[in-house]
Nucleic acid binder design. Sequence first.
DNA 1: ATTGAAACCGGCAGCGCTGACTGTTAGCGT
DNA 2: ACGCTAACAGTCAGCGCTGCCGGTTTCAAT
Lengths: 210, 210
Amino acid sequence: MTSRTQNIVDVEVIGWQAQKSAGTRNAILESAIACIVEFGYAGATTTAISRKAGLSRGAMLHHFPSKLDIIRGAVEHLHNKRLKAFRRAMSRVAAPTEDRVALGVDAFFDHVRHPMFVAFFELSVAARTDPELAGILRPTQEAFEAEWYRTAKEVFPEWQGRDEQFDIALDLSRYVMEGLAVSSLTHRGSESDKRILKYLADKLHELRDA
Amino acid sequence: MTSRTQNIVDVEVIGWQAQKSAGTRNAILESAIACIVEFGYAGATTTAISRKAGLSRGAMLHHFPSKLDIIRGAVEHLHNKRLKAFRRAMSRVAAPTEDRVALGVDAFFDHVRHPMFVAFFELSVAARTDPELAGILRPTQEAFEAEWYRTAKEVFPEWQGRDEQFDIALDLSRYVMEGLAVSSLTHRGSESDKRILKYLADKLHELRDA
DNA sequence: ATTGAAACCGGCAGCGCTGACTGTTAGCGT
DNA sequence: ACGCTAACAGTCAGCGCTGCCGGTTTCAAT
């Protein structure tokens, strides 16, 4: 109870009441992400975003002067959420369990099936033909990729010294699971996911023990 | 010479001179595909398509009354081209060579790096949030996928009887190479392609000889 | 209580895209 | 030679999206 009160006081001190409309910013960014997932990047218009966020377009443009500002904010927001989710998942994998490889595969597959992945995917595809969006996205993607490699090395120390095999394992995992995810997005969801994931886990074990 | 004259006569008989504007239809469809690759599906406007095709918008709308008609035609056009290219590539793989698996990997990787794949990819992504486009695309995708499985079984008869391994090999190939291709589209081209492709070929050999 | 800033709303103009229209030219059948 | 049809050009209205501006309410500070 004390800490909760303290928390409220903190909020009141740091940001004054009106600042609570940081919640509005948050709602706008969440809405933008939801619209990208639901309507695609081209269909994520400012009208749709403001409506789903529950305020008028004019009010939204008060917080974010232009559409690109919204996108910029949404990318950053997504990046933070994705990093946090990824670290949480990885901390579970890091625990000393019998088969951490299988856990890692499951974790990464969960990540790749999450709506956040869909949003990043849509953004990436749009960025291919939109240099401005590409400029926004590139640093974020590189940051996540670097974090991914770093964390993977950290979580699987037993691979130390077999860099070649480890890199292959990471590439293989990434391509198989991203390919799988993209396939299930564009074509309809497949039925043979389990089979190929089991094969992938087998091969990762081989690469580790070779 | 005779055959050439005969040919001209044939053309004149079957299709009258004005029918040569079937070439115009072809140019429009090629332009549509090029625009999808260059500007993305959302950026492939009728204006851009007509300009790249070298005629006025009004003239283009004479051949294809609506934009969706153009897309329909472009999808069909793409499908035919892709099937032909695929069969040509597979006929080379079918020849009795020392390592047909490696040839197959190379062939499919070429296919996946071809602009046609980019076009289909853009269309697939757009179709995720565009039911009408999805309706156009689905039969085509399924037809190609079916042809892919059929041809693969035909080209690699030595796999006969090991259906389980064969299906895994096909899924693995597809996901790895599509994942690779998509990655090189959205992120920048990677440098470790060769390494993972070599690993893939190794594993395919194992699956064949296991 | 008054003032000022910030959150919010509604409306407006500009722009690009689509689809439909009218007008022009060239080739084919009779 | 004549008329018809089809390929082509150019223009127009309608529509949706973006960005901006004026107006209103709410809240904190003095």
